[in-house]
Simulated assay, not measured.
Amino acid sequence: MKVARFHAPGDIRIEDAPEPVAGAGEIKIRVRNCSTCGTDAKIQKHGHHHIRPPRVMGHEIAGEIVAIGDGVSGWSEGDRVQVIAAIPCGTCEECRRGRMTVCPNQESMGYHYDGGFAEYMVVPAKVLAVNGLNRIPDGVGYAEASVAEPLACVLNGQELARVGEGDDVVIIGSGPIGCLHVRLARARGAARVFLVDLNAERLAMAANLVNPDESIRGDELDVVDEVLKLTGGRGPDVVITAAASGVAQQQAIQMAARQGRVSFFGGLPKDAPIIQCDSNLVHYRELTIVGANGSSPQHNAQALRLIAEGSVPVSDLITHRLPLDQVLDGIGIVTRGEAIKVTVEP
C-alpha cells in the first residue's frame, strides 16, 4: 500500500509499505479520508518532539473497518468509523477527574502511532480503551466525518470560553479552525460573530462560506479600534485567537468587554511563546483567559452529532480533495493559506 511518511523536517516521502495487521485489541480500517491541518505543515517544516521517524502522518481520520483483532467486540467489518487524534490514557488523575484533554500521558495518531495518510491503518488498542472510535452517523460522508476531529477541538475551546446565548464573539484567524468557530458560535446562540485575518484573500474566501456579521482585514485596519466601533465601545464577550499569533493574543486582551472571556486557542511558536499582557485590564475588567488543548473522545462523538444534525455544516468548508500521492501539494496549499480545508482520499 501507499503511505506518506515523515523522515525529517522537509522530508516527507510517498512510499510503499506492507499492509498493517490488526493485533489483539486492535482494529484495521481502510482510510477513506484523512484531512490536513496547520499542524501537518508545522511538522513538515520543523518536525515534532513526539514523532520518532519514520512515521506515517495524518490525524483527522475516517474510514471503514476491514479487520478486527482478537478480543475486540461491538464492531463489525464494514462499519464506518471516525478516529480520535489525541489519545488520553484514561487512568491518570486528570483522566479520572474527567479532564482528558490535559492528560499528561496523552499520545496521538500520526505522532506516536502511524496515522491516516495511508491506504490502511490500525486503530490502536489504547484508542478503543477510551471509546475513541466513533460510528459515523447515517448521512454523514467520510470527508465530513474527518472534520469531526478539528470540530471537537473547537467544541472544547468554546466550552472552556463559555460561548453562549447573546454573546458578541470575535474570532481572529479565518482558516478552517476559524470557520468552524464561526459556525459553532452561531450554533451555541451567539448574537454576532466577527471574523478577523491579515490574509485578505483567505478572509474573503472564508467570509463567503461562513458569512460572519463582519469580516475585518487586519492588514488594513486597527483591529481593536474596529471591534470597539462595531460593539459600541463595549468590546466582545468572547475573543478566540484561532491563529499562532502573539499579537492576536495581545489584541484579544485589549478588546475584550468587561467580564469577557479570551481563548488562547492557537498555540505560539516554541521560540516565541511570551506576550505582553496588561494585567490591569485583566484585573479591573475581570477578564478570564483560558487555553484550549485539543479534544476528548467525548468531544469527537459530540462533533459528529453536530455535523449529522446540521447544526455545524462542514462539507462546504472542504475546498480541496486530493489523492494520497498529492499530500505534499495539500500541505503546501494549507501553508500558503489558499484553502479552507484540504482532505486526502487514499
Results as ranks from 00 to 15, higher is better:
217 R>W: 03
55 R>Y: 01
184 L>S: 08
119 E>N: 13
63 G>M: 10
310 G>F: 06
30 R>Y: 07
12 I>W: 04
75 W>V: 08
198 L>Y: 07
112 H>T: 09
179 C>V: 06
16 D>N: 15
323 P>L: 11
8 A>G: 11
86 A>F: 10
82 Q>S: 15
96 R>G: 07
223 V>T: 12
331 I>T: 09
308 A>D: 01
140 V>W: 03
280 N>L: 13
103 C>N: 04
102 V>S: 13
157 G>V: 05
114 D>G: 10
15 E>W: 07
343 T>S: 14
145 A>Y: 03
105 N>C: 02
247 V>E: 12
285 R>C: 04
36 T>D: 10
251 Q>F: 03
314 V>I: 12
295 S>T: 01
202 R>E: 07
310 G>P: 14
264 F>T: 05
277 C>I: 14
273 P>Q: 04
192 R>F: 01
199 N>H: 12
90 G>R: 15
41 A>I: 05
237 D>H: 14
208 N>P: 00
344 V>I: 15
207 A>S: 15
280 N>A: 13
299 H>G: 12
84 I>M: 11
102 V>C: 03
164 G>L: 05
237 D>M: 00
112 H>L: 05
149 E>A: 06
281 L>C: 06
324 L>F: 06
5 R>P: 01
229 K>R: 15
285 R>Q: 12
259 Q>H: 14
83 V>E: 06
164 G>F: 07
225 D>P: 04
21 V>T: 15
96 R>F: 03
27 I>Q: 07
110 G>N: 00
303 A>F: 07
76 S>V: 09
216 I>Q: 05
270 K>P: 08
251 Q>A: 07
129 A>Q: 14
11 D>F: 09
303 A>N: 09
87 I>W: 02
47 G>F: 02
200 A>M: 10
145 A>V: 11
216 I>N: 03
107 E>L: 15
39 T>I: 05
55 R>I: 03
346 P>E: 05
345 E>F: 01
70 D>A: 15
231 T>M: 02
144 E>Y: 04
165 E>Y: 13
139 G>V: 11
33 N>H: 15
50 H>Y: 12
258 R>G: 11
240 I>S: 10
24 A>I: 05
262 V>M: 08
104 P>F: 01
274 I>T: 15
273 P>Y: 04
65 I>V: 15
4 A>D: 01
143 A>L: 05
226 E>W: 00
206 A>D: 01
136 I>C: 00
228 L>I: 06
122 V>R: 02
94 E>T: 13
314 V>N: 08
42 K>P: 06
294 G>Q: 13
183 R>A: 06
100 M>Q: 14
173 G>D: 09
343 T>F: 05
192 R>M: 01
111 Y>N: 12
188 R>C: 00
105 N>H: 14
291 G>V: 02
302 Q>L: 10
91 T>F: 01
293 N>I: 10
98 G>N: 06
32 R>I: 04
143 A>W: 01
67 A>H: 03
133 L>I: 12
18 P>K: 05
273 P>M: 09
24 A>D: 08
178 G>F: 00
70 D>R: 14
227 V>S: 05
322 L>K: 13
307 I>L: 00
281 L>F: 09
295 S>R: 07
181 H>A: 02
143 A>M: 03
155 L>F: 03
233 G>L: 08
279 S>V: 14
67 A>Q: 11
332 G>V: 08
88 P>H: 07
195 L>Q: 09
81 V>T: 11
44 Q>T: 09
63 G>P: 14
272 A>I: 00
342 V>A: 11
309 E>S: 15
48 H>E: 02
